[in-house]
Design a protein around this nucleic acid. Structure first.
Length: 246
DNA sequence: TCATTAAATTGTT
DNA sequence: AACAATTTAATGA
């Protein structure tokens, strides 16, 4: 449960040996919002971006910590827990590859409002808040990405509240999966989401057995296909509507 | 590259 | 929660 090796302004750089590295140009091309940048912007981002591998259970950022980076999942799976400082945890959201988060807090330069922890060994990238703002000031494509991101996430939170009220476990699993397959928020996922049934159970709040049962039902309904270590979506629209009227 | 072994994940009780 | 079956990853010839 230690912090990751992003050099936070105050201490981490001295406590944790630099586990972060820079990115190659080829890797940068795989990052969703990087394709819309011009050469100058891309160069600065490449110089600024740090990539670090986090182990399962490690915290990427903690509530109340000063904002230093805008983060994104390059590979793996993170869990965003939106718990209040003292109270009970409120919502759990999975963050699959292609997901970038924290722009709300980076924008306002407020402390982080969530805990983000790795559900499995993951590769996380980040750019500094300074570079984030620099991009906002000059790249229209970047602005468009962030705007889409904010808008889409709003929809996600509304959907998440609805999922919490659902009683049918199959429907809960279906909707949660649909959220993870969101092509706007998580362009890195594609049609095959790498997630174990154990991890899914942890996100949805169900036992692994029940998740397995739900996945089988969804597969029978020809909405998804269950694969080893992952789920393939066959009909995203049907997955979103599952448990409601067709 | 292939065969063997260990580890992870799944399906079932 | 425990178990067996299956799939993947790691290892070494």
């Amino acid at each position: 449960m230690s912090d990751v090796g992003f050099p936070s302004a105050s201490r981490a750089a001295t406590v944790v040996p630099a586990r972060s590295r820079s990115v190659a140009a080829a890797e940068l091309a795989g990052i969703p919002w990087a394709s819309g940048l011009d050469a100058v912007e891309r160069e600065r981002v490449q110089a600024d971006m740090r990539v670090v591998q986090v182990q399962a259970g490690e915290l990427v950022c903690r509530v109340g910590r000063p904002v230093t980076y805008w983060f994104g999942v390059i590979d793996g799976l993170l869990k965003m827990s939106n718990d209040s400082a003292v109270g009970m945890p409120i919502t759990f959201t999975g963050v699959p590859p292609g997901g970038w988060f924290g722009e709300g807090t980076v924008l306002k330069m407020e402390p982080y409002r969530y805990n983000i922890q790795a559900l499995r060994k993951s590769l996380v990238g980040g750019i500094t808040a300074q570079t984030f703002h620099w991009l906002l000031d000059r790249s229209i494509g970047f602005n468009r990405f962030v705007m889409m991101q904010l808008n889409e996430r709003l929809g996600q939170f509304i959907a998440a509240r609805e999922i919490d009220r659902l009683t049918d476990p199959d429907a809960r699993v279906a909707r949660s999966l649909a959220a993870l397959f969101n092509p706007v928020l998580y362009p890195g996922v594609g049609h095959l989401l790498r997630i174990t049934q154990q991890e899914l159970g942890y996100l949805v709040g169900l036992s692994r057995q029940r998740v397995n049962e739900a996945l089988q039902a969804l597969q029978t309904a020809a909405v998804i296909r269950v694969e080893y270590g992952g789920v393939r979506v066959l009909d995203l629209e049907a997955l979103r509507r599952y448990g409601r009227g067709a």
